[in-house]
Nucleic acid binder design. Structure first.
Lengths: 219, 219
DNA sequence: GGACTGTATCAACACCGTGTCGATTAAGTC
DNA sequence: GACTTAATCGACACGGTGTTGATACAGTCC
């Protein structure tokens, strides 16, 4: 959905107010500085001055390019999300027909990979959510996309008799997608009880399969 | 684990420096003000001055009772966690023998109920985690408790032949416990894709049962 | 009942991060 | 060479945090 990242003619509201001169370099410098610093410390430990210094400008000049520190992060997250959306489209095709286990694994793999390759940004986005409504809205859209995809898959599998009935497909999808988010976040952040990087996919795929195709009754 | 809440003789580091006079009222007033304000707005929108005013004291006096705003929230969360731990102990007994579905539901119900009844505090704790290491450590301990309980249950069920083998019990437990946390948080916060309050337990119990007792292979 | 001790209180201060204003410079047009 | 418009920054105002030092206000203790 709405990328507006390449559309340099249309100012995207988040970035700079309508320009085309050499200041593009500075804008990029700010974004790169932000990504670099986020590898070292958390968002709350980075000030506007740090970003300005890193880009070789003064703090007031920073505000010529971005309205706030949050806006910088949102711009970066926007792009990450757009990239991840690409993987998703692609993976959904694989999932549609053929071996469900392999298809589901491909889909979750792509998603996991997209965020793991830019851990720092993913963690910053999470840190922003509680205090920034724009970040919340953006993430809501992202989650909604995955949930509706997963819902469609579950319903299709039930329709063709491959999966048994159970909880409403959308409810199941919400819980599973939120599980993925949380498990991945914990692993990225290196939380104390968390899955090892190499185990994440095995465990998640297994739970998804059992939740979708398994029967609920214990022996 | 370590409550140190009743132990008024031992100053608990978080609270006030060794006292016993009428200032106890003020300490309680601050805690109550914090809980009250958290019902209205998020932690980041509450200042030390708000807490002081609410308790009828000046901002410097606040620092006589607590070293920071975070310390107030941590004190409250400490108590919530202690309460929740009580429920857990109790629920584990029920789970041990008899109908697994009913037992599991009881356990998850108690946990869900403990946090739902003080939503605002739970949300504040989550907001604190990214910026406060003490909050992270506290929550780590809480998660670890649930994870090791769940691990034990899964291993016991596998040992007695009620549950089939599968992913390592602890890995499964981590993912499931983190799912619960995330799903419950989303519901409390009223996030956009989130489960309705009345659906949460049905969905979570179902996924737990399928993940523990189900077989992974699709038809 | 006056000297002593520890609790409780707050005005004033120093500090830091944010965001804005106004003045200034450096390029392009035409 | 007068006119815009991009780009820059010093100086300011603001709001929040945490500390210091002075002070009032109990209660002992002799």
């Amino acid at each position: 959905m709405e990328a507006a990242s390449k559309a340099r003619s249309t100012p995207n509201g988040r970035g700079r107010r309508a320009t085309r001169a050499s200041g593009d370099d500075r804008e990029r410098a700010i974004l790169e500085t932000a990504e670099r610093l986020l590898e070292e410390r958390s968002l709350s430990e980075i000030s506007v001055d740090d970003l300005a210094k890193g880009a070789g400008i003064s703090r007031p000049t920073f505000y010529f390019y971005f309205p706030s520190k949050d806006a910088v992060v949102l711009t970066i997250v926007d792009r990450l999300v757009a990239d991840a959306a690409g993987s998703r489209e692609e993976a959904l095709g694989t999932l549609a027909q053929g071996d469900p286990r392999a298809g589901l694994r491909r889909a979750l793999e792509d998603l996991y990979g997209a965020f793991r390759s830019r851990r720092a940004v993913a963690l910053a986005a999470a840190e922003l959510r509680p205090t920034n409504s724009e970040a919340r809205d953006l993430w809501s859209q992202v989650m909604e996309g995955w949930v509706s995809d997963a819902t469609a898959v579950i319903e299709a599998e039930r329709a063709r008799g491959a999966a048994p009935p159970g909880q409403p497909a959308r409810d199941l999808a919400i819980a599973l997608v939120q599980m993925n988010e949380r498990v991945q976040y914990a692993t990225f952040a290196g939380e104390s009880p968390s899955l090892e990087d190499e185990r994440v996919l095995d465990v998640l795929v297994d739970i998804w399969l059992r939740a979708i195709y398994g029967t609920p009754e214990p022996g």
